[in-house]
């Protein structure tokens, strides 16, 4: 059996289940998110759609902004770092944030390695597009996995793709022989015992959320129906016309995802979702960052 090192981090992710984690740039936005029912907030320098529009290098948020957010809310505060940027991770650990997102939404810092997450006490959430990538992150110490989706697009198709791929690959392990499992572990560069744990449990050993392109309550409900354990919303809240209302609607839809009547109520009259982008025309695909 594969041993997860950060037990309490894995536990905290379980407490977030069924909830919505919202991207916020300022303390004011964090308060709106908390009041709307977010189960955690994610502090970052710019929301993904602004990073796309403005370009340039996207980095960890200014610690003073994160500190203001920590002061403003009582729910867990997460913050993003660049892929492989161990120094940004140590700074956030020193600030005692509750969770770190090693995120492809920011510009990657290390072309060879992700952060050695087992070496830090703060739990990490990492993005994945398929099972192998999810397992590599878990082996490095990630306490929570989310799909990458295609952040900042308001287009949910990549999040659906990644969740279905992960689920499908987990199901496919069932019919594999011992030799095939070993081959999979070698090809994906992951510990064989982790692969056999997942085959047996038919799920990842950590909580799995979805992220990337979620813009409406129906998007959240779709992904929950497909087996997501919770939802990250980036640009979808604060790039909508009425952030407080959109935030509340997505929280409601995430809880009542299997109640079509409730979903109808929640979605009716809710205009002003963020504008969307066609993924085929994007100059940068954030989901291709990391490996």
């Amino acid at each position: 059996m594969f041993t997860l090192t950060n037990h309490t981090g894995v536990d905290l992710a379980k407490m977030l289940k069924g909830g919505v984690i919202m991207d916020v740039v300022t303390a004011k936005q964090a308060k709106i998110a908390e009041a709307a029912g977010a189960c955690a907030v994610m502090a970052l320098e710019r929301v993904p759609s602004d990073i796309r529009a403005q370009g340039g290098v996207a980095r960890m948020s200014d610690p003073s902004l994160i500190a203001q957010i920590q002061k403003a809310v009582s729910i867990p505060v997460m913050a993003k770092i660049r892929i492989g940027h161990t120094a940004e991770a140590r700074i956030l650990e020193a600030m005692a944030v509750d969770f770190i997102d090693e995120s492809e939404v920011l510009t990657p810092a290390d072309p060879f390695h992700h952060v050695d997450k087992n070496a830090l006490k703060i739990p990490f959430v990492c993005g994945a597009t398929n099972l192998g990538e999810a397992l590599r992150r878990i082996a490095e110490g990630a306490c929570m996995i989310r799909t990458k989706g295609e952040a900042g697009t308001g287009n949910v198709v990549e999040a659906v793709r990644h969740l279905k791929l992960i689920k499908g690959e987990i199901a496919a392990l069932k019919s594999m022989t011992a030799a095939e499992l070993k081959k999979f572990a070698v090809a994906e560069r992951v510990p064989p015992e982790l692969v056999s744990d997942v085959k047996k449990a038919q799920r990842l050993p950590v909580v799995t959320f979805v992220a990337g392109g979620i813009a409406t309550p129906a998007d959240a409900a779709l992904l929950m129906e497909l087996g997501a354990e919770g939802v990250f919303v980036g640009s979808g809240i604060f790039k909508s016309k009425d952030p407080a209302r959109m935030a509340k609607a997505i929280v409601q839809a995430t809880t009542h995802y299997n109640d079509a009547k409730k979903l109808l109520q929640i979605s009716t009259g809710l205009t002003g979702a963020m504008a969307g982008l066609e993924i085929a025309n994007l100059p940068t695909k954030m989901s291709e960052r990391g490996w």
Binding site: L16, G37, T255
Partner: peptide, 11 residues
């Protein structure tokens, strides 16, 4: 259960 009391409280 465990979770965020602010969220569960609202519901």
């Amino acid at each position: 259960p465990g979770g965020e009391s602010t969220v569960i409280g609202k519901f």
